[in-house]
Design a protein around this nucleic acid. Structure first.
Lengths: 224, 224
DNA sequence: TTATTTTAATAACAAATGTTATTGCCCGCG
DNA sequence: CGCGGGCAATAACATTTGTTATTAAAATAA
């Protein structure tokens, strides 16, 4: 259980990914612009920074200890961020379509990443290198309205983490599970349960118990 | 227990505070500059935005539901941020000397604050109004180096919340308590234990148990 | 000082949660 | 197809944690 860093996790980026230098389609283009709100002209300049990659499930994109040099955007698929604690694989975040993905602290400070990034489903990602992302951010930062939008997005992330932390001091695990169903139903549907358990801060057994309890409460009478 | 929003909590700012329009001293000046890194000239322009206030312990600076229009800096004293959940008073953050204090989400988005800000000790604070803080931030944002520093500080806050959240999925309450002793020993010394308990996500009784267990382990033999 | 209120420790009991082990299902791979 | 591994449900038991109540100490106010 603490032994097996299994073989799939050892696949390295350039082995697993076979980058495909496809053209970014309109949908993806719009998503990027939402994250990095430059106008179209500027964008055309920068599009070449981004490369598409097609990866299998359980592919590691960044390993704990490495320094994050790329930022990813999810066109299709599902990822998780996790760290190892005492032999246990603890998942603390999920990423679905339209998310930007990076080991944020490693990316910004160029320190070894405390976390691992890994696909859960086969995924289509776009990535760019830190240097190039920084060029875009620098450009954004010169325009007051864009800059505000960018800064807002950072604050929003902070608020998200705050709220998640709040739920650990105010909610029971059952309530946290219900919140997740309410707020991110896609996660429940697409992510294996044992990953969700660690995200909620409980054991897999306990999550299973919560589910069966909820199921029981919902249909107290279910004649044969 | 859930009933008493006692009288002291109802003291309102301008009753409790008696603003003293003192001159900001050199130490405080330096602290501000650390948070809002403008050069001295600019600072002189802005100093008048800040007002000093002297408040008693248990004074409410911002009540849940109000919109935050001020940001505070702590010259001396200790504050906490808390919210009410199901009749329980849950503390999620402490502020000591040299902290900036605000209901961040309320301050930025001008929405009712989900939290209450309250002094724990008699405190000396400096505050400025949102409009004025925004002027300073706008100015900072025009200078690339200062802007980077500012953005970094936002990220740092995000990382702090992330790490605190991590500790809820990887550590036992006992370990979280030990971490707090290690990382913020001042908090342990100055903050009543029942506030620390909710910060750690446990009951007061349980924190008390943890403490006595640790004390027991430390001195297994303590002859008469 | 005396009287109140706040805070902390402890015990006793109840409830929640973790651990380990077992079983069965499902799915991808040979 | 059939096999093996990953995944989920469940049971049984151990441990942790919460709740309520009691008491004492400490801080604060009158």
């Amino acid at each position: 259980m603490s032994v097996s860093t299994d073989i799939r996790k050892l696949k390295i980026l350039f082995i697993a990914t076979k980058p495909i230098f496809a053209k970014m389609d309109q949908l993806m283009f719009d998503r990027f612009k939402n994250k990095f709100p430059l106008d179209d002209d500027k964008w055309m300049q920068y599009l070449s920074y981004f490369k598409r990659m097609d990866v299998a499930a359980k592919t590691t994109l960044l390993r704990e200890g490495e320094i994050a040099k790329k930022m990813f955007l999810v066109e299709k698929g599902c990822l998780r961020a996790w760290f190892n604690n005492d032999g246990k694989d603890l998942t603390f975040q999920f990423f679905l379509e339209n998310s930007t993905v990076a080991s944020l602290e490693s990316f910004r400070k160029e320190i070894p990443s405390p976390i691992t990034l890994e696909t859960i489903e086969p995924s289509v990602l776009w990535y760019a290198h830190k240097k190039d992302i920084e060029k875009i951010i620098a450009e954004i930062s010169e325009v007051p309205t864009l800059r505000d939008k960018f800064i807002n997005s950072i604050f929003e992330r902070t608020f998200d983490y705050m709220k998640h932390f709040f739920s650990f001091i105010k909610d029971t695990p059952e309530q946290r599970y219900l919140n997740l169903i309410e707020e991110k139903p896609e996660i429940i549907k697409r992510v294996p349960q044992h990953y969700i358990a660690s995200f909620l801060g409980i054991s897999t057994v306990h999550l299973s118990r919560i589910k069966s309890k909820l199921a029981r409460e919902k249909q107290p009478s279910q004649g044969k």
